[in-house]
Design a protein around this nucleic acid. Sequence first.
RNA 1: GCCUAGGUAGUUUAGUGGUAAAACAAACCCUUGGUAAGGGUUAGAGCGAGGGUUCAAUUCCCUCCCUAGGCUCCA
Length: 622
Amino acid sequence: MNLDNLRHSCAHLLAHSVKLLYPGALNAIGPAIENGFYQDFDMGKWKISEEELPKIEAKMRQILPTWEKFTFNEVSLAEAKRVFRDNKYKVEMATEFAKGGKKLMTNNPGDFLDLCKMGHVENPSKELTHFKLLSVAGAYWRGSEKNKMLTRIYGTCWPTEKELNDYLKQLEESKKRDHRKLGKELDLFSINQLTGPGLILWHPKLSTVRNIVESYWKKEHSNENYKLVYTPHIASMDMFVTSRHYNKYINSMFPAMLHQYIEGESAPDYLVDEQLKPMNCPNHIQIYKDRPRSYRELPFRMGELGTVYRYERAGTLHGMIRVRGFTQDDSHIFCTPGQVIDEVRGVIKLTRKMYEVFGFTDYQVYIATRPEKYLGTLEMWNFAENSLKKAAELESLSYKIDEGEGVFYGPKIDSKVKDSLGREWQLGTIQFDFNQPSYAESTKEDLEEFWAMKTFKDKFKTKENLWKYLKNLGRGFDVQYVDKKGEKKQAVMIHRTILGSMERFFGVLIEHFAGAFPIWLAPVQAKVLPITDRNLRYAQDVYKKLGNRGIRTELDDRNETLQSKIRDAEKEKVPYMLIVGDKEESKNQVAVRLRNGKDLGQYSLAEAISEIKNKIENKIVD
RNA sequence: GCCUAGGUAGUUUAGUGGUAAAACAAACCCUUGGUAAGGGUUAGAGCGAGGGUUCAAUUCCCUCCCUAGGCUCCA
């Protein structure tokens, strides 16, 4: 059975039911989506909340028996306009489809007439029985916030009762591994109102894991001949004027720190205001440009775990996964055009290697191509897009094409990983940049764009001042190298991240492992559980010996039963429990239990330590 | 930003127009127990913030802040 047809049909059933229950409500679009469907409504005078979903479901079941068949009719635009005269959304769509030369079709199962693209089940009254409505949300008509906000109802529909129940169960399970829930339960991180929204406080346990990940990241990058650097969190405003982040990216930037706000309007040093950085690249460029570079130095790979701040809109923040302050595992590769394919291949290889270590084998790769508005020449774009494709093919990387979804300054490859609810998040990216390495005079259009921004009006007072300033800076950093013949050439610049940002990576990582980090990452690798107070001294001895061997260990010396100590250690997802009682103490042993419940029995202390060390060193994912 | 739902002890939740209840966690006491919760005692919130209505508000109203789901997948 075609799942999309099933779900799309179910969306029609939902539309019919809502229209019966809420006279005057207008149905807009209602497509099948992954795992279900949605249907948008203009509810008119009605308001709808999730409490009403059972009522709507009941209506759907009530009318379902009358839905014997979808019958289709082709209609003219005039006919469609007449039939749907009360529904401006249908009229708008019909008009547009007619203009695009598409056929206009209607159907009317159960006496419910709707405009429809077709694609339905044969026998709705029999096949549409296993559905459930899930949630209510707002959604703009056609996805644009300039349009009216419609009410969207999400639901799911499956061929059998079992599949429906399995899916609902899976949804429940997924919620349990939500990184925000686990973050609290496992004492990993918090978001505090005084610190501010979208800003992560990394607690000791997660910081431990991050330190390990960062060390690993640094080691891998050093091995690949990346030069690791540090750059400041703020930079002169001029930097982001030159890079043109100010006019292209202003909605994602925190406000400039104008000195006049500190020192008053008469501050003489108005040219040295600062900006919290939303990007690391301009700073890396300054390091590159500190002296002339020869082609012999290329490719120059410069890397930094660089913290940036971006003003993400309040409604888009999401735990650690979408935040306002985050540390990118950012690197920039400066190279010659001839080196591009090898460099992209190198990044693909490194990405693959690192993802495998963390157990991400199932990630999706997208190549995003030239958008409508773009900087640089067509020739450059074609060269870059072909290089990305070529490199991907040489690495036998399967990819999808995101047509026209590249950034204005260059095409890119994104790697996306799914969270516990199946939502895709971008981690790694490889992006060409034709903007920053180039140079151009400032234009009068630039002047108008900057003058339109309050910050620049405040700072420069007159257009003349602003123009002098812009003219002096120009656009782009003019990143060059000297080639074999001694001629200056513009370098190719590639931005790339592998993990994306520490914040997002950890959000996804926590969900990926459901909080049970593999032993090499686990904040606590082993917990010593003495059975009685008689064994405390020996337990301390074991605890110290593990610590001395570099194993992150805790000792549970609380006055609790062994059972409750085990329960707590398992809830904390500690990989190894070392239980010590009279028996173990007398033989210098430990009883080993794993967090999955396996009782491995007695081991000598030395054996247990070397076994644990071995698993850590080999980064074994259990 | 917009739509919908929320914000009550450290956590998870209950509850009410007359100044809050439980479980777990914590501290202490008893218990010294062999592979997912032994028992008891005590302490802990004035109910997101501000304003309003009222004799009286955590409970009703307004504004703001924060959190969650959604605002991409086109009849």
